[in-house]
Each structure stands twice: as C-alpha cells, then as structure tokens.
Design a protein around this nucleic acid. Structure first.
Lengths: 243, 243
DNA sequence: TGCCGTTGCGCACACTGTACGCATAAGCTG
DNA sequence: CAGCTTATGCGTACAGTGTGCGCAACGGCA
C-alpha cells in the first residue's frame, strides 16, 4: 500500500475549514458515536447505524469524517477529554495528584470499556488536542515534583502504562460480562466450573478463584487491586526521587 | 491399491484426492491465523482469507472453530504460549526472574503487535491453557519471593499490567508505522511538522519531540523506557517485601 | 455390504466501509 | 434581483464480511 503524497494522514493534521455547522457537525457525530459505543459496545459501531442514530444517511457522515478510522481517532480523543488532572499546586503533593490523575484515567476506561479495544490499534492518538492537554498537565506535575526533564516523561509513561494495562484487563472482563447479559454474580457462578476445570493442575490459581466466590464485592476488589499496583509504582518513583 | 478405471474420468470430475495430508486441524488453523496476522495485520484476518491460505473453503473452518471470536481467543492463547518464564530457582533472585518474564511478555507483544488490539476485547483469555501455565509459573515466582498468598496475585498483576500497558502503546505505534509503509526514520520525519504544530502551546511536550529527531536509535530508546518503568515497579514491590 | 458420523464446501443472507454522482442549499459577486 | 461557487446530504452500487444450512464424499464400523 503506497503512501499518498499529502502531508499526513491523521485527523489532527488534516486542514479543516471553519464554516457554520448545518445540521450535522463533527462534534455531533463523535458525541453520538460515543453514546452508541457506550450503549451497544464496540461491535455495534458502524457508519450506517451511526447515521441512522443521527437521522442521517450512512454516507452523509463522510462529509465530516474522512473514514471510519478517523472517526475512531476522534472518539478516542473525545473520551480522553473526560480525564481530569489536578492543577499543579504543591510539588510536595505530586504523589497525591498523580494518584488522582491515574484514578481519573481508570474511571474513564471503566465508563467506556470499548476504548481498551481501540487503544492498541489507533496510533497517533497522542496528537489529539485532549491527549496533548492531558500529557502537558501530567508532565508539569512530574517535573515540578523534581524529575529531571527526560526522566519526567519516563515516569509519566510508566504510570500511564500501568493504568492502561489494568484498564485493558478490566475492560475485557466488563465487556464479556456485558455481552453475557448477566449480573457479575451470576456470570461468575456460571463460569465457576470452567475455571475449576482449567485450574485443576494449577494449585496456585485456586486462590484466584476466591475472586469469583461472590462473597466479596468484586468492584471493591478491583479498586484495591488497582490501588496496590499504583502505590507500588509510585513507591518506586518516590525512592528514585529521594536519591 | 485397487484402481477403478471404469468410465472416462476427467480431471475435473474425479473425486477429491484421498487424505494424503492431515486435512484441517484446529492447531493448523490457529497457526496459519497467527502467520496471517503477523504478515498482514489484524484487519486482514477474515475467515475467507484464512480459508484460502489453508487451501480450504471459508466455511470449512467452522468444523474446527465455533466462530471468529473463538478463533481469536485461541490465537491469543497461542501467542501467550511463546512467553517463557524462568523456572523458579533461587527465591532471592525473584527480581531477575520477574524481569526476564516481563521482557519475554513484551517481546511477544512486539513480535505480534496485533495482540494489543485484541487484548481489550477478548475476555476469558486467562482460561486458555497457555495463559494458565504462564500465570502459575509467575505466581510461583512471587510467592517464593515472599509475597503472602493474596498479595502475590496483586504483585503479579501489577507487573503484568505495566507490561501490557507499555506493549499497547508500542504496538499502536508499530502498527501505524507498518501501515505507513515507511521506515521509522522516514515516518518520524514525516510526522515532525504535525507534532510541532500540535505541541505549539505545550512547551513541555517539546522535549518529547527529541524522541523523533532520529539521532538516537528508537528501538533502544523504547527498551530503556520500558526498563525504567519496570525497575520502578519492581523497586516498589521490593521495599514492600522488605517491610 | 450397508450404514453412520465426520469433514469439506457451495450457496445464500444480512451486513459492512466507502467511491461516485446527483440534488439541494447557502453564500458571495455583480 | 440573477448567476455562480461551494458545501452538504443522500441514493446507489460494489466488493468484502461472518456464518447458517444442506449436500456430497469419505473412514471406520457392524
């Protein structure tokens, strides 16, 4: 597939004219796409369905969006916009601020589990305005905390990678859960025998099954698990900072 | 071997040749799917293309695989099987072993960048035999290191989450890079103006551009970045262990 | 020999992304 | 006002998708 000669093929770089919006704007399309994804999942997002959800023809969308991939890029940046990072205040409290930021990212992923299945495919998302703004804020935070220039980026990336990794795993679970149409309790119970079977010769895994016994609140369980890893990562960064 | 030479049999009417080859097994299908994904990317995996790649009809695959989703689950578990975790030897060297395991996971993702776009969608992958075996080994490792039962799972999950997060980001980059058809140098150079434009009002991001200046080896750069976060995570786990 | 379960496959259906071209509407110039 | 340019919506069409269904050929068994 030879590359065309126009400069760059990403949403953020394509020149965009500014005209008044006549009944179908890009923002409107992206917003409805997010809604559709939230309600019906990632498989339900097709140009036709999105079109009819907007009372528009399927191909009308192409006047505002180059193609489906571009729409996906826009959608990803859109939900990134929901993430809030505390304004840089007291450098000594960088850890608390980073924790809040990380939790905000995770909360976004849990609100929109479908992003997890898009993040691995959509590159260049970091060029989106919301992603840019977010990164800037967080970089500020780590630099103010005392990480030297190049290391601040590494520290930030480490935290983000952890959060995205947890989010990926959680989103996968929530997605199959939603597709099953059952409650988390029911689904876990339903899965129980298969897990027992699969872990027959793996004694250590047995304890993992405790996760599925339904006595504990699974949501709280996930929260604590997330917090544990985040705290370890921040511990590691902190001792690095104190050298 | 009795040959029936009765009527005028032409090549086209002759019944299919006998079973000189193992026909079509699930392992064979999964193996070819991985090959196809490696070579042509995640968008190229369709039942029809996979069928023709196996000299088989498209729907023949359904005798060995329930549906496309199941194939994806099998494929994910298959590549998990490439990951090698060192046998638990000296508990004091848990850190080195965990590092090797983490690097093995990352290497797998870099070999098969398409997994990143599947991990967020395919839940239940942890029921696959290879994933089970891998988890068991790693759990062993962390328990031997001294993490109490339930915490070993949290520690392992934290490390895995970090690795998957890094892999997701790297895979996204490599995928768009491959789709661009250019070398990493060329593509970075090509992207340069767009990045400059996007980061105009974000001074801290400027330094990120150093990543794209092409003077440093980007692969080595990624390796070091990965190693930095991994070391911080392991630092955090280590001090927790020594408490 | 006849039968039966397994396997491969052709066909069909509903659905996808999107290129193309036409019809309309909104703005500007005169 | 007319006339023109440009932006927008949409109908049609094409190639490609996952997969349910039913037929045909085979291996192994009674």
């Amino acid at each position: 597939m030879p590359v065309d000669e126009q400069p760059i093929q990403s949403v953020w770089t394509r020149p965009r004219r500014k005209r008044d919006q006549p009944a179908l704007s890009q923002a409107q399309i992206v917003g409805e796409a997010v809604r559709l994804l939230d309600v019906e999942g990632v498989d339900a997002l097709s140009m036709r369905r999105l079109g009819t959800a907007l009372n528009a023809g399927a191909t009308s969308l192409y006047r505002h969006v180059a193609n489906r991939d571009e729409l996906v890029e826009l959608v990803v940046d859109e939900v990134y916009g929901e993430i809030s990072v505390p304004e840089n205040s007291d450098p000594a409290k960088w850890r608390a601020a980073a924790t809040v930021g990380a939790q905000s990212v995770r909360a976004m992923i849990l609100r929109h589990p479908w992003v997890a299945s898009l993040l691995g495919a959509v590159g260049l998302s970091y060029l989106g305005p919301n992603v840019m703004r977010l990164n800037e804020r967080m970089l500020n935070l780590f630099e103010a905390a005392g990480f030297p220039g190049d290391e601040a980026d590494q520290a930030l990336s480490a935290v983000i990678a952890y959060v995205v990794g947890v989010g990926t795993s959680e989103a996968a679970w929530l997605t199959t859960l939603a597709k099953s149409g059952r409650s988390e309790q029911e689904w876990s119970e339903h899965l129980r025998p298969a897990i027992e079977e699969a872990s027959r010769e793996y004694p250590h895994q047995r304890e993992r099954i405790a996760q599925f016994d339904g006595t504990a609140d699974p949501e709280q369980f996930r929260d604590e698990k997330f917090r544990y890893g985040l705290d370890r990562m921040l511990d590691g960064l902190e001792i690095r900072l104190k050298r």
